[in-house]
Design a protein around this nucleic acid. Structure first.
Length: 582
DNA sequence: GCCGTTTTCGGCCCGACTGTTTTCAGTCG
């Protein structure tokens, strides 16, 4: 089987790193990194594209890179990779990852002091040999030791310091509220950055403010109870750190510039870079301060972000789409999708009760769902082989079905569906008999065991579940836990094709630890013709509201309400199911 | 290395900070 996109992307990234060490011009290095990003996020197999000569249709891949990809597929490496690996030890790339050190200094240390690993760097810094290199001094040496100390305390492989989105938003909103409370009347503070783009996780908190007293506001950051220290309270803002070690960046603007500042600090970096490149071609230069026009030499400022995009001839781009995944082209061509919203959701088809590992009863879950305005709710407790004492035997499931039916008969204003989240066994079978599954209104099948099996077996296992005539949907299809567990090895293209062919829906599980399918996977699934479902997977009444994180993922996947099955009434949704279930 | 309703060659986003400088290179977001 050909290399997956992630492996090709890794190879291109390594090559970019190596060329950077080799002193290549920055644009060539960037070309490799852009290509790696494009490959990683492609919704089809880049290996297959390259083999048919069509990889050049992807943005950032030209003839040269297509050829290199083919060589990589055929031989497992490329000549330039091998040549540069022989020239630069792998430890050098690790050195460039340290803050304050980049390719130039890593190479300088290698040629001057033969430093080719983190260990040798530490030894040389302790022996005060770094300062002997021309262009480096004592402060640099101290900086290196500090960076090494922080790395030891916080290894990069732990993806350290990243906050899951809900925690980031909670923290950001708390800080914003604290600043407003201490500020002059009329002060406005809001979050920007990756939290505003609703990314899976967030590295630091970006806050944007407008106020009549910028200095006072910047100083008041230090007074917030969550803030441990403020490192630089510069002119138009301040940078601090919370007690939990999260960096906080506060930037202050005049009201007339709010749009420019918000646009700049919402990012992403690649989105802004591409936006500015496109702007230059129109004779415009975009920065956080305004838009400079070549012809008049005048700088236009924008109170709102809409104006920034309008000046560039673009439709407004929602923050969730600003990842340089084709949004600029779509905005220029008037082809941006109308993104799904939380209000579009009419029901939730995955939740648990006290019958398995949930904390609330059927009635409590039903009332909470009705309170949210839902028209229907599927009760989907775990199945017969689930561990932790939370299994539901066939007899218990029969009883549960009766309880759901009784509750449904009693409750007005919401339709309760008797369902189950059935385990997909390692051999692809389900852990209830078909006869029992046939009595259910809704069946969602999930993998909860044997995550470590090989790609081929896992793919066969999941496709068997997809092809099962009584399975309506697959729950959390990749099993990832954000920042903690990688997706299982599975051929997603094959899964998407099987799901589209059989009419089996794939879930965006809205649990903020999962968000599975991810934005990129959900977009690829939608393009493959798969019907998407967004479920809370709530285990108690108050986590029904996790739906919002699933909506965020769906929006980042460019999904409209029409792409998502549970924006429909239950009667209509039922008709979207595979033939055997209608 | 990519890419083109101003270019198939010559460009390729913008600004801030830091440290080691005496005018700027390297790094970062």
């Amino acid at each position: 089987m050909d290399l997956p996109n992630a492996a090709i992307a890794d190879a291109l990234e390594e090559l970019g790193d190596l060329y950077e060490l080799d002193g290549a011009i920055v644009h060539r290095v960037l070309a490799y990194r852009n290509a790696a990003k494009t490959v990683r996020e492609a919704s089809v197999s880049v290996a297959a594209l390259a083999r048919t000569g069509r990889a050049t249709e992807l943005r950032g891949i030209g003839e040269t890179l297509q050829q290199k990809i083919i060589t990589l597929l055929d031989t497992g490496t490329t000549p330039s990779t091998e040549r540069l690996r022989a020239k630069f030890p792998s430890g050098l790339i690790a050195i460039t990852r340290l803050p304050g050190l980049g390719p130039k200094r890593a190479r300088l240390l290698f040629t001057e002091l033969e430093i080719d690993s983190i260990e040798k760097l530490r030894e040389a810094a302790l022996a005060q040999r770094l300062r002997t290199v021309k262009g480096l001094g004592a402060k640099f040496e101290t900086g290196v030791l500090e960076a090494l100390g922080r790395m030891a305390a916080d290894p990069p492989e732990r993806a350290a310091g990243r906050l899951l989105l809900p925690r980031a938003i909670e923290l950001g909103e708390t800080l914003a509220a604290g600043l407003i409370e201490r500020a002059a009347p009329g002060t406005h503070v809001q979050m920007a950055g990756s939290a505003r783009r609703m990314a899976d996780s967030v590295k630091d908190i970006d806050l944007i403010a407008i106020t009549t007293k910028p200095t006072t506001l910047a100083q008041s950051l230090a007074g917030l109870p969550e803030i441990e220290s403020v490192s630089s309270a510069g002119k138009p803002g301040a940078r601090g750190r919370t007690h939990s070690g999260v960096s906080v960046d506060l930037r202050v603007a005049k009201p007339a510039q709010l749009g420019n500042l918000l646009q700049h600090f919402t990012g992403s970096g690649p989105h802004n870079a591409a936006l500015r490149e496109a702007a230059v071609r129109k004779g415009l230069h975009v920065s956080e301060y305004g838009v400079l026009e070549d012809s008049s030499q005048a700088t236009r400022t924008c109170a709102g972000e809409e104006e920034v995009y309008e000046l560039l001839g673009l439709a407004y781009i929602e923050p969730e789409l600003r990842e340089h995944r084709g949004e600029l082209e779509a905005a220029a061509g008037g082809e941006l999708p109308r993104l799904i919203e939380l209000e579009d959701i009419r029901g939730d088809l995955h939740c648990h009760t006290v019958a398995s590992d949930g904390k609330n009863t059927i009635e409590e879950m039903a009332l909470a769902a009705r309170e949210r305005g839902y028209e229907y709710l599927a009760i989907t407790d775990h199945s017969a082989s689930h561990g932790f004492g939370d299994d539901v035997s066939p007899e218990q499931l029969r009883r549960q079905i009766e309880l759901v039916r009784a509750a449904n008969a009693q409750l007005e204003g919401i339709e309760l569906l008797a369902g189950s989240e059935v385990n997909v066994m390692p051999d692809g079978s389900l852990d209830y008999e078909d006869e029992l599954l046939g009595e259910l209104d809704w069946v969602i099948a999930s993998v909860h065991t044997s995550f470590g099996m090989g790609e081929q077996s896992m793919t066969e296992r999941m496709i068997a579940a997809i092809e099962h005539p009584l399975v309506d949907a697959i729950g959390h299809p990749t099993g990832r836990l954000i920042g903690r567990r990688e997706p299982y090895a599975v051929d997603l293209d094959a899964l998407f094709a099987a799901a589209a062919r059989t009419g089996t829906m794939l879930e965006i599980n809205a649990n903020p630890d999962r968000r599975d399918l991810s934005d990129i996977h959900a977009r690829a699934a939608m393009r493959a013709g798969v019907r998407i479902l967004i479920d809370s997977d709530a285990h108690r009444t108050d986590t029904l509201q996790n739906m919002r994180w699933g909506i965020a993922t769906a929006r980042r996947a460019w999904l409209t309400a029409a792409d998502v099955a549970n924006t429909r009434p239950w009667a209509e949704l039922g008709k979207l199911r595979k033939q055997t279930r209608q």
